[in-house]
Amino acid sequence: MSNGFYTSIDNPRYPLVCFDESSKQLIQGTRTPHPMKPGQPAREDFEYQRNGTANLFMCFAPLKGWRHVEVTDRRIQLDYADQMKYLVDVAFPDAIKIRLVQDNLNTHVKASLYKAFPPAEARSILNRLEFHYTPKHGSWLNMAEIELSVLSRQCLDRRIPDTDTLKAEIDAWETQRNQTANTIDWRFTTQDARIKLKHLYPAIQD
């Protein structure tokens, strides 16, 4: 993966997309919360009911200020393959090649697409994707991880009882972020990378 990706100019024919996933525990209160009053915040009881977890797939194009979050019940190979198909067929249908930044999770492989689709379709999707993996101990180099953190702070930092509510809240957040084309001010330069990630760069002897 090249650190220069994040400081390059957006090319619609070769869009840069960062991909990552996270999870959200679904929690429902067991008692009606006390509403907010003048001089007093809303209060809710500490007791709650767990309603399982949901998976969040994040696709983030930092040079465009665009993101899409898909809520699913799981994150197995078939789900990952569906996200790749979405990127190629729906999000960027006119792209020649999508430069995809992702971590080394075991589902993030070409074999996932061959497991999900007929060989010809899997090959067609993969021909439009160019995989770039972050270092195994450097997932923070993936801007999708940063955008997931923004989502967590701005939208998910509270009790959400079910997937329908979760999808509605995330859709509203996504729409607002995309309308204003929010992006990330990436300040980690190539020179910084050569210092912090010295073990990944070749040593040149005079």
Results as ranks from 00 to 15, higher is better:
A172W: 00
E47M: 01
Q40P: 11
L105V: 14
T189A: 03
A54E: 06
H132D: 04
R13F: 15
T107K: 00
K64N: 07
G29M: 01
C18M: 08
N55R: 10
L63W: 00
D157S: 15
P12G: 10
F60C: 00
K97T: 14
A42W: 03
R194H: 14
K198T: 14
Y14W: 12
Y80N: 10
R158Y: 03
I146Q: 15
D45S: 13
N104W: 12
P93T: 15
A95D: 12
R128E: 06
M84T: 07
G39R: 05
D192M: 08
R99L: 14
V150I: 13
L129F: 06
I195W: 12
E44D: 08
N55G: 10
A193N: 07
I195M: 13
V101L: 12
N178C: 04
P38A: 08
E21A: 02
D171Y: 10
I146F: 15
M36S: 09
A203V: 13
V88H: 06
V17H: 08
Y6K: 07
G65H: 00
I98H: 12
P62W: 03
R67L: 08
R75C: 13
S149Q: 14
F131D: 08
R13G: 15
Y114C: 01
A122P: 02
N182I: 10
W186F: 08
A54L: 00
